[in-house]
Amino acid sequence: MTEAALAQSVGSGRLAGISVTVWRAAGIVFASFVTLYVLIPIGVTIAMSFNDGSFIRFPITSWSLRWYEGFFASTRWTQALANSLVIALGTTVISTVSGILAAWTFDRYNLPLKNVIYVLIMLPLFTPGVVLGLGIAIAFGGIEIGGWSFFGSRGSVVIAHSLWAMPLVFMLMEATFRTVDRRIIEASYDLGGRPVRTFFEIVLPMVSTGVISSALFAFVISLNEFVMALFLTSRGTQTLPVLMWLSLRSAGTPELAVTAVVLATAVFACMSLVMVWYVRQLRKLGR
């Protein structure tokens, strides 16, 4: 390199240095803005849940835990929380099992009209909740078995939520199964592992991270879902979001904020659990 060229490159380096600083500052500002944008609604809700006042309103003049006490003392709220958790758990079980089996079948066997089946499985995920909720209410609303009516039961919401969660599990697991080395499955057969044992002992552990994350998705989807639950629940089976909506219409007390915090905590708690498990699993496999 000639001296002149060297000098020029050093000069442009200084210019570039300045613009790098500017860009970095702009980046920090932008990142802070996005972070605040995401955190403010959650932060405000958390702050409001400790408000001693009777209304959701700023300024907060005194702090207390009275609305938390109220929440956990009220059977209406705890019943709704229990409903939400039971429904989410049911949804997780049904959608994970059926989604995994469907994805495995899809991956292993040459089905006729594969693309059509794929679209059919995925369809509910893209159907508005209002449509699905109404459809289930109309289609299965009349079912009664020995005095137990399907409409308004937790089971109906589980079925409805699974319609959304199952395609998601299917999509995730179908992609996961495709990463499984076919030779490893063949090796299991070769060593005497029958298909069912191979599936449980070899395939499932290999895709365990996919299973856990899709189960989590199913759980969270059900916990968060509002519209279908609104259509399909009755007074005794209302989920947390439904009860929140109904009480918002009657009285906007900070109890609502408490509910929101409880719901969000439930979601974040299971996500954290999964993260911990995931990291441990990765460490175990030493990747």
Binding site: D181, I184, A187, S188, D190, I202, P205, M206, S208
Partner: peptide, 12 residues
């Protein structure tokens, strides 16, 4: 019993 090209050991 087959010995595969990749070994095909069970990773877990």
């Amino acid at each position: 019993a087959t010995i595969f090209q990749s070994g095909a050991l069970f990773p877990h």
